[in-house]
Design a protein around this nucleic acid. Structure first.
Lengths: 223, 223
DNA sequence: TTGATAATACGTGGATACAAAAATACTTTT
DNA sequence: AAAAGTATTTTTGTATCCACGTATTATCAA
């Protein structure tokens, strides 16, 4: 089975890899604020290496959209505008819709039980109020994507989850009221059980598109 | 209007940018064969710079999937397996399907005429036998995508076109018999004229998925 | 001759120091 | 107060060096 996202932390080989992981983790957790400048020398000192591998890591982070690299003006933490956030959710909707459609024929009863276990774990994580609900939520979506058995598709979806992760955290930390996540995800499982691929695709699309507006209020209105 | 792909060549600012453009262009044209090793020093000497910006460019090319970077083993030109090719066309189908759906409301009569002009230009490029049919083809798809007015979506689709470009060239150069491209693309325009967004989305999806098998035979069967 | 192992050459990844170019901040002048 | 010019800081790129991993070749034993 292709790896679910987030990719399991294999022992880092190169310094660039370590810098990339370090920075990605920090950015996902929202340790740096959008617009904040990342100084290669500082980061390098932080993790005990020279500037070179850090600069290389910046390039990859920029490709991921986590960071903006402007010529002669260095590396700045990327922030999403409302439009960009909606766009990402539109893209997620079709990508994860495709993943669901492709995954369905591969899901047996055992896998359904696993998904329901993940649903419960997500529920518990949510009640404990901790923001590791976000991680559980990614696990749930990641599991379904993994069942599509499409490495590149999984990778692209995973990358989008990384970009929106800080906003998901802020959103969940800020909303004490129980929201409709449980039912939405249960509906996805139900749609998968129905055996109707196009219906399941549609349910996933709607689920994803329905969450965008809830996050939108935590995003800077424009740039 | 957001830029159509391929992105217009703005004057390169940094050396890394120049290296990236140089290598991307070479890879798109198929100047390097899959599996071939790219030695930083050689490339650097070729375009008159040191290894560092070249190494940085490698990272971006790797993110784009044009190149594979394995620790201590350097940079190798990426080749697609049949499975990967099909996967890319699956992803393209939903992404460009979304683009069509979003673009439709923005297309007026003037824009239809522009699309038909592009269709004719594609036809002529194809009859001249030259492989710049590929460029015209990208222009056509790029124009529609641009009308979706979604920068990230456009960027992702563009990246996929770049990856498959060498195979498109081989395919077209190898098929002297006139294929159904003209009708397929005319059908896309017709679907856009229909005003039915979901129908147009479906037509674009089918168009893209139908081309995958034709390219598949020019791809190494496995790795 | 063939297969395994050791020696060697090579390239990559990374560190460091330095130079050039650009952007930013700061004066000074009008 | 605005503009022009100067200084400083930061980024970017170069050059050089070294350690380590990989690949190739050479050597030796079966």
């Amino acid at each position: 089975m292709p790896a679910a996202f987030p990719a399991e932390p294999q022992m880092s080989a190169t310094a660039e890899e370590e810098a990339y992981r370090h920075l990605q983790r920090a950015l996902r957790l929202g340790r740096y604020k959008p617009g904040e400048r990342l100084i290669p020398e500082e980061i390098a000192a932080e993790i005990g290496m020279s500037r070179m591998p850090v600069r290389e890591a910046f390039r990859r982070l920029a490709s991921d959209g986590l960071v903006v690299l402007r010529p002669n003006r260095g590396c700045v933490v990327a922030g999403l505008t409302v439009d960009e956030l909606y766009e990402i959710f539109e893209i997620r909707s079709v990508l994860e819709g495709l993943a669901v459609r492709l995954a369905m024929p591969r899901i047996d009863e055992e896998e359904f039980e696993e998904l329901e276990r993940l649903l419960d774990r997500m529920e518990r994580a949510g009640q404990s109020g901790s923001s590791d609900w976000v991680v559980r939520h990614q696990e749930f979506h990641g599991r379904i994507c993994a069942l599509s058995w499409r490495p590149k598709l999984i990778h692209q979806i995973s990358a989008l989850h990384v970009v929106i992760e800080p906003y998901m955290r802020i959103w969940f930390d800020d909303c004490d009221k129980p929201h409709s996540a449980r039912e939405e995800h249960a509906a996805v499982i139900a749609a998968l059980r129905s055996g109707d691929e196009l219906h399941a695709e549609k349910v996933m699309q709607d689920h994803i598109l329905s969450t965008a507006p809830m996050l939108a209020e935590f995003v800077s209105p424009s740039r």
